[in-house]
Nucleic acid binder design. Structure first.
Lengths: 206, 206
DNA sequence: CACGAAAGTTTTATGGACTAAAACTTTTGA
DNA sequence: TCAAAAGTTTTAGTCCATAAAACTTTCGTG
């Protein structure tokens, strides 16, 4: 924006610069091994200034994660546009896209930092950013369900928003479990999520 | 065990002593305000020795949490013995007991420390202890479902173990959300969990 | 354009979690 | 009784995070 004063422009560009440098560092040295001091030195600023822009080291990480969101959202939209045949497949694909996207971006260990910080700092910037992110995904799930309703594969009477929230949450806790355990692979979780949905179908269709 | 040598007995009693002292400190001063140094000083040992017994400050906290488990399990068993009328009520009660028990024991802020550490340290002692804890609860949920099947309220054909895992997980993520947000109260979550189950019933009964 | 206020940055100092290594003490078993 | 094993303490250090004071840059206004 040309309307910004010098101060504002400097602030924005410095923020970008910190993010770029942090990203490079995280990728080459890993999250835990890179220190705030390193990032500050690379950026020719003091460590305290980094804290001026980001709440915490994990906050810096989240800012990077949310950058990758646009891509994830596009992938999910593409999947929805492909009109999955049934709800189980749709939710399973949703989860799979999320997991694969996550793994293409960060290691499980680094994701654990993100998730753990997202719980611990519910009130901070970090927490809020993360919640927004989830809300976007819930919205997508909702859009998907509405499509199913339009195709008459789900009754109109069902509360789409409530269902979206619930199915997203179910998918999300399986994502947590995926991230928490290094020995659990994508297919493992896929099977489990499908089994979840089949079990629910089995109880509630009675 | 009388068969233990002096060394082993000392080790066990010192561990107990640290736990007791930590519990007292956490209760009077709160989790974040108490330092490992304080606990060590109270116990007349060095801070490093505390780390010799527990992986981390959060690990100390978890050891305390798991002490309270026996009570929780008894409450859940009592609820199951009361033969709830339907699955929705049963799962909702399950969640409610968990939340109330949690709140009677620690503040949300302290629970956030527990949960965030449980994700971050999936491999450590901490993570394993926490997983075991969840498994016990899943087993209880399973027992409850088996009862429902015996009472012919759920078809025999349903995979009880899978369903238990799924319903527990759903309940659990709502617990996470309860803990993550100071402004969300027990009833709030109760409504949401019921709505989840009703939505699922609505889709899958078609 | 000059000057004071506002915003932003750096320096300095501090606290606390956690780790590693070396020195020391106690227990144990032969 | 004595040496090895186990456990503890001291010491020293790294890093995250925060606070306060001093300093520099930008901005709006007369």
């Amino acid at each position: 924006m040309a309307s910004m004063g010098l101060r504002e422009r400097q602030k924005a560009s410095r923020r970008e610069r910190i993010l770029e440098i942090a990203k490079a560092r995280f990728q080459t040295d890993g999250y835990t091994a890179t220190t705030i001091e390193m990032i500050a030195k690379d950026a020719d600023i003091s460590a305290v200034t980094v804290y001026n822009y980001f709440d915490s080291k994990a906050g810096l990480l989240l800012a990077l994660v949310s950058e990758s969101d646009q891509l994830l959202i596009r992938q999910l939209k593409a999947m929805i546009a492909r009109k999955p045949k049934n709800l189980v497949d749709a939710v399973a694909s949703f989860g799979q896209i999320l997991r694969r996207h996550a793994m293409s971006y960060l290691t499980k260990s680094t994701w654990r930092e993100v998730l753990s910080a997202s719980i611990n700092e519910g009130s901070s910037d970090f927490g809020r950013t993360y919640l927004e992110l989830d809300n976007v995904l819930i919205e997508l799930m909702h859009a998907m369900i509405v499509e199913f309703q339009q195709r008459k594969l789900i009754p109109e009477a069902v509360d789409g928003a409530a269902l979206a929230d619930c199915l997203f949450s179910l998918q999300n806790i399986r994502f947590f479990q995926f991230i928490a355990d290094d020995n659990r692979d994508d297919e493992d979780i896929d099977r489990r999520l499908r089994r979840d949905l089949e079990s629910l179908k089995a109880v509630f269709s009675a």
